[in-house]
Amino acid sequence: MLFQDVVFWVLAIVAIGAALGVVVIRDLFRSALLLALVFIAVAGFFVLMSAEFLAVVQVLIYVGAISILFIFAVMLTSDVRRGNLPNRLQIPAVVLPALLLAAMVVTAVSTDWRLIPDSQQERVGLVQTQSVNVLSDSALEQAGVSSPEEMQEIQQAGIADLLISDFVLPFEVASVLLLAALIGALALARGREGT
């Protein structure tokens, strides 16, 4: 456990330091790079919590795509050499996030976090050790789950299954929203006819 504690503290310091750097540092390009570092540190947290898939997806999407987006945006901004200019909003900018941080910390600490029930722990175990590839009845039977009630509990949903089965309409509507954003961006970037 000592090893994991050390890693946690190192990652925490790196993440918070980089996040502070994003908002404090003058040079815009460096703050974009520090944001990428924050994303990598968050991926490290996911690995610590044994959510490897989330960690890898975090790196792929956030660092591999969204950071590039930020960097392109920084590059295409015209006054980028002047960086983050000081202005009169500095006091509110410290006070309001501090209040928000306090509220979030209080909420996180005082909530009663329930771990997932044992049956779903078993599901996680079966999938992570790759004893089953498909959550069908016969595969579960081969993996040693005997009673139908257990099988049903195991097959019942985590977020992925819910997104595809019960919440598929909001899922698709979100992708329509993304499509609208894409069309809007294209329309803005196209320029006038004939130029």
């Binding site: 990428a36 490897e52 890898v56 997806v57 792929l60 950071s67 960097i71």
Partner: peptide, 18 residues
Amino acid sequence: NLNVGVLFILAIGSLTTV
């Protein structure tokens, strides 16, 4: 022997872009 090995390779490969 990660069980998301392929995704790992793709994700790390996209770090070169930065």
